[in-house]
Design a protein around this nucleic acid. Structure first.
Length: 776
DNA sequence: GAAGTGATGTTTTTT
DNA sequence: ACATCACTTC
């Protein structure tokens, strides 16, 4: 991986010396400083994982029991990889370390403690689809306008409330939140939130956010339980710290920052690689961490040496990221020689982009002797993969696309899982409703309504109502039959192992019979998927597929199986053995590296995405671009197209601004990005009105005049000090005047007229804007 | 309850 | 372009 550092696996002896020798000075300090709070700022390719794993190994070597170490990561894959690497140093003990994702580790704790807060140990974990489905039902049950109250939006509101530790009660007390909802035409959001929480609890179910939120609540409500875990985890490590949200940080802090704690906490992250802001991650956590642990002697280590890429790439990355104002100062550097210049590829259309890049891939395989697996195509949106797929197939280049629907989200799989879930947790309404009339068994809406009201009137669960509700003879027979089936399944799940029981349950469900009627290839594929599901369960029973994450790895019950799959995704099991070209979104590529990387679709409105342009929040896009180019070890190709189909329309976008932020001397053909392309984000077809309304991007965007602002003296004023009429200075647009401000506190949007932009007024969200008030 | 129609909404994603 | 979905109609 890092080829100028020796990676030869070593014997299990005399480790202490050998692994420390593989580290540079700063890395070594970060590894041996095991007491007290430590912040490691780790640039891309700086050996972050190596530091984390050796650090854990070192802690174990110092005599700490592995189970007293808690190591939190973002993906199961990262956790697994880490354990394997620790095991190479300290042997099997490594597997006793509590290493996992925030969600899986917290779920594990909650299984033990949830009874204190009114959940059973077998609580179900609702995935995003389940949550949305619950919300949709609540919203329609409350007779709210479905168009205003979109499940997705409400879900995000609730999720962000939970991520900021705001309960429904707390939500009601926050004027700004209520105001935002009101302005958006969703004043009852908080009521939906409250009902949603109640419904989840009644269903003995937690959504992903609950796994964090409820744990926080548990620790808060029962200090003695918190104490237990504070005492248990003597050393805590957090990876990808820049991607944690406030709630995650709060729990982590709770575990380590108390009274006489040694505060053995190490967080590793890179503010420049924070790309999950859109789902609540906040760099403030890094600042808070520094503040919170300053009194306890925090030590900071910056890993700036890059072992991954050659110099043109590293320097280009530095240049790009320097356009972001808010960042921890650091410059990555490399000793790998200047290497190749960045290849820039200008093409006429998205189609040509596909063709040219595949040709380049063939060329690289020939000329540079690269294998398929050395090569990755990275794009901003998953939708861009199609054209590359077509050309790769045409030229017989094996490839694999990552991303998209996960196996467990496929309809037929979810349908089958519903039958399994309801057998384990009879309160799981989502699963019950999903399976009740699929396959069709004559329990339609009318009947369902009757069952519902029967349940409400008698204060029993839906499941119980099936037994007692009175219905017309024919339907009644159907309902009772279904009820008997569920009872049978419950018994099976108790008596048999996961495979035996699920095999029968899925067969009984009738789903396969139903799918067999669909003779299309898709129908066949669905049946195959159910087969794979069963294969997976068999695997679980026969092998130790999930033993890492499970409390009791001998437990082969259906219960245990379901609890595990809720938190794993397919990628976790991905085999890296096959020699294929990788296609994935830039987000998905974080943490990976390839000898040759193609970053495609570098156009305004695409990368940076129009969403980001609209909200004036392109710093995160820039970090994303930074992540993208730093994936490359030796060869980096950046491409942009003059025109491409987007949402069914042919669009002309100008080259991405990010391309100009890289100094020309790093490009092999710098003239390509200079000027031309009158393209201004216009459309060929004349449905401008809808588009313009959607994107908020008018025709004359682009070609912003360069404004000279004295960086040294620029001090942005606090956003709430800005008022109408003020003269302000903006880093990009220069001097301007605030014409008006609309929107509530925390969400204010100003219309500003900048001298540099003539008559065009800019709407800027003050929350993000960096504006300095001018006094003259 | 199936089949057809029209409107709608389309970044990024783990858990 | 395309998929999803609520809603209509038979």
């Amino acid at each position: 991986m890092y080829d100028n550092q020796c990676t030869k696996s070593m014997e299990n002896k005399s480790l202490s010396q050998s692994y420390l020798n593989e580290l540079n000075d700063i890395q070594r300090k970060a590894v041996v400083t095991i007491k007290g709070p430590v912040l490691v700022v780790a640039g891309p390719g700086s050996g972050k994982t190596r530091v984390l794993t050796y650090r854990i190994a070192n802690i174990i070597e110092s005599g700490v029991a592995p189970w007293e170490i808690l190591s939190l990561t973002f993906t199961n894959k990262a956790a697994k990889e880490m354990k394997e690497r620790i095991a190479k140093v300290v042997g099997d003990r490594a597997h006793k370390v509590w290493a996992g994702t925030f969600h899986s580790v917290f779920a594990k704790i909650l299984r033990v403690e949830a009874q204190h807060i009114g959940y059973s140990p077998n609580f179900t974990i609702y995935d995003t689809d389940d949550s949305k489905s619950v919300l949709t039902k609540i919203i329609s049950g409350m007779n709210l306008n479905k168009d205003k109250y979109k499940a997705n939006i409400i879900k995000n509101r609730i999720s962000s409330a939970k991520s900021n530790i705001i309960s429904p009660v707390g939500y009601r007390q926050q004027k700004s939140l209520l105001e935002q909802d009101s302005i958006a035409g969703r004043p009852k959001t908080v009521d939906v939130y409250e009902k949603y929480m109640a419904k989840c609890k009644a269903s003995d179910a937690m959504d992903f956010d609950d796994l964090l939120y409820q744990l926080f609540y548990l620790f808060y409500k029962f200090p003695e339980i918190a104490k237990k875990y504070q005492a248990k985890f003597k050393y805590i490590l957090v990876d990808e710290f820049q991607d944690t949200n406030h709630l995650q940080y709060s729990i982590m802090r709770k575990l380590v920052n108390y009274g006489d704690s040694e505060r053995n906490i190490c967080v590793v992250g890179d503010d420049a690689q924070s790309i999950y802001g859109f789902r609540g991650a906040t760099i403030d956590n890094i600042l808070d961490f520094e503040k919170d642990f300053k009194p306890h002697g925090i030590q900071t280590f910056k890993l700036e040496q890059n072992y991954r890429s050659t110099e043109h790439i590293v320097q280009a990355a530095n240049e790009v990221i320097s356009y972001n104002s808010k960042q921890i100062q650091k410059k990555i550097w490399s000793h790998k020689g200047s290497g190749n210049k960045i290849n820039i590829l200008k093409v006429a259309s998205d189609n040509e982009e596909g063709s040219r890049i595949v040709h380049q891939i063939l060329e690289q395989k020939n000329r540079d002797h690269l294998s398929n697996s050395d090569i990755a195509i990275l794009y901003r949106t998953n939708g861009q993969s199609r054209i590359f797929e077509e050309y790769l197939r045409r030229y017989n280049v094996p490839y694999r696309i990552f991303g998209g629907l996960s196996f467990y989200q496929r309809k037929e799989v979810k349908d089958a899982l519903a039958y399994l879930r309801i057998a384990i947790n009879p309160n799981d309404e989502e699963a019950l409703l999903r399976s009740m009339n699929y396959p069709k068994r004559g329990i339609g809406d009318t009947t369902l309504t009757k069952i519902r009201s029967h349940a409400t009137e008698n204060s029993v669960t839906l499941r119980a109502a099936l037994k007692t509700v009175d219905l017309p003879a024919r339907v009644k027979a159907q309902v009772r039959r279904f009820e008997k089936l569920l009872t049978l399944h419950e018994e099976l799940a108790q008596k048999q192992d996961a495979y035996e029981s699920s095999h029968t349950i899925i067969k009984n469900s009738g789903i396969i019979e139903l799918l067999k009627k669909d003779t299309t290839p898709e129908g066949q594929a669905r049946i195959d998927n159910l087969g794979s599901l069963l294969d997976g369960i068999k695997d679980f029973v026969e092998n130790d597929e999930f033993s890492e994450l499970t409390e009791n790895s001998d437990d082969r019950s259906l219960t245990n199986y379901l609890q595990n799959i809720a938190l794993v995704s397919e990628q976790d099991k991905s085999d890296e053995s096959s020699d294929v070209v990788t296609l994935m979104s830039v987000h998905a590529a974080k943490g990976l590296e390839f000898p040759s990387v193609f970053v495609v679709g570098l156009e305004e409105n695409l990368f940076p995405s129009f969403m980001a342009l609209e909200s004036q929040n392109i710093d995160e896009e820039r970090r994303l671009f930074y992540v993208a180019i730093t994936r490359a070890e030796k060869l980096l190709t950046l491409s942009f197209a003059n025109s491409r189909y987007q949402y069914g329309n042919l669009r002309h976008n100008s080259p991405s601004r990010f391309l100009e932020e890289i100094d020309a001397n790093h490009y092999d053909n710098p003239s390509v990005i200079k000027k031309q392309y009158g393209g201004t984000g216009t459309l060929d077809k004349s449905d401008e009105p809808r588009r313009a309304a959607l994107t908020g991007i008018s025709k004359s965007k682009r070609s912003l005049p360069k404004v000279e602002v004295d960086m040294a003296n620029f001090k942005p004023s606090p956003s709430d000090s800005l008022e109408e009429g003020m003269k302000v200075l903006h880093l990009k647009f220069g001097k301007g005047k605030i014409l008006s401000i609309e929107g509530g506190k925390g969400n204010r949007i100003a219309s500003i007229q900048f001298e540099s932009l003539g008559d065009e007024k800019k709407r800027i969200m003050l929350k993000f804007a960096k504006l300095q008030i001018l006094n003259d």
